[in-house]
Simulated assay, not measured.
Amino acid sequence: MVKTLWLVRKLGDFASDLVDEEDVVVLLQDAVLRFPSRKGWYACKEDAEARGLSLPPDKLKSYAEIADLIVQAKKVVVW
């Protein structure tokens, strides 16, 4: 179970110091330009592909996988 799912849409809008170890962060839209290097951080596969980015498959989540995370999470925060 995911404690908090953070859906981040823009690079400068997100305060990563709010994220706990049990949280998951998914970078969407223009936020995919920031490489998801931390544990529990992912980029939206379709948004990364639309911007011509090549990221490791283990750092990508599809729209279907993101929808599953939304259902599993105790709380969802959109930035």
Rank of each mutant, 00 (worst) to 15 (best):
K3H: 15
K59H: 10
G52L: 13
R38G: 09
Q72Y: 05
A48H: 04
V78C: 15
L7H: 03
L69M: 15
L5N: 07
L55S: 04
E65P: 00
D13C: 14
V24R: 06
S37E: 12
M1I: 11
A67N: 05
L28N: 01
G52A: 13
K3D: 15
D17P: 03
F14L: 04
M1P: 15
W6A: 06
A64F: 08
L33N: 09
W41R: 03
S16H: 12
A48R: 03
S16N: 08
P56Q: 12
V71E: 13
L33Q: 07
D58T: 03
E49N: 07
E49H: 12
L55G: 05
A67F: 05
A73E: 04
L69S: 02
W6Q: 09
Y63F: 14
D47W: 05
S62F: 06
E65A: 07
W79L: 13
G12D: 14
Q72I: 03
D30K: 01
L53A: 05
S54P: 00
A67W: 06
D17V: 06
T4K: 15
A50H: 14
K74N: 14
V2F: 09
R34M: 00
C44E: 03
P57D: 14
A73Y: 09
L27E: 00
D20H: 14
E65M: 03
L27G: 00
L60A: 05
Q29P: 00
L11K: 10
Y63I: 06
V26H: 00
E49D: 12
V19T: 08
E46D: 06
Q72F: 04
S62V: 07
D68A: 15
P57Q: 13
I66W: 08
D30H: 08
W79H: 11
R9D: 13
V76W: 09
D58R: 03
R51T: 07
V26E: 01
A48F: 05
E22W: 06
K61I: 11
I66F: 07
S54G: 11
L53K: 03
A31N: 00
I66Y: 07
A48C: 09
P56R: 13
G52K: 08
A73L: 09
K74H: 14
V71W: 13
L11D: 10
S16V: 10
A67I: 06
Y42Q: 04
E21P: 02
C44Q: 05
M1L: 11
R34A: 00
E21S: 12
S54A: 14
A31I: 01
F35C: 08
D20V: 04
A15L: 14
L7C: 08
V25S: 02
L18W: 15
S16C: 09
D20M: 10
V24A: 05
V8K: 00
A64H: 11
V76F: 11
L69V: 02
V77D: 12
E22P: 00
V2N: 08
D68C: 09
P36S: 14
D58H: 12
V76E: 10
E65W: 01
A43F: 03
R38I: 01
S62M: 06
L28Q: 01
W79R: 07
K74G: 15
V25R: 02
V77A: 13
R34L: 00
V78P: 00
V2D: 06
V32C: 02
Q72D: 12
D13T: 15
K59M: 04
R9M: 12
D47S: 11
A31G: 02
A43H: 03
D20Y: 08
V26L: 02
Q29V: 04
W6D: 04
V76S: 15
L18S: 11
E46C: 05
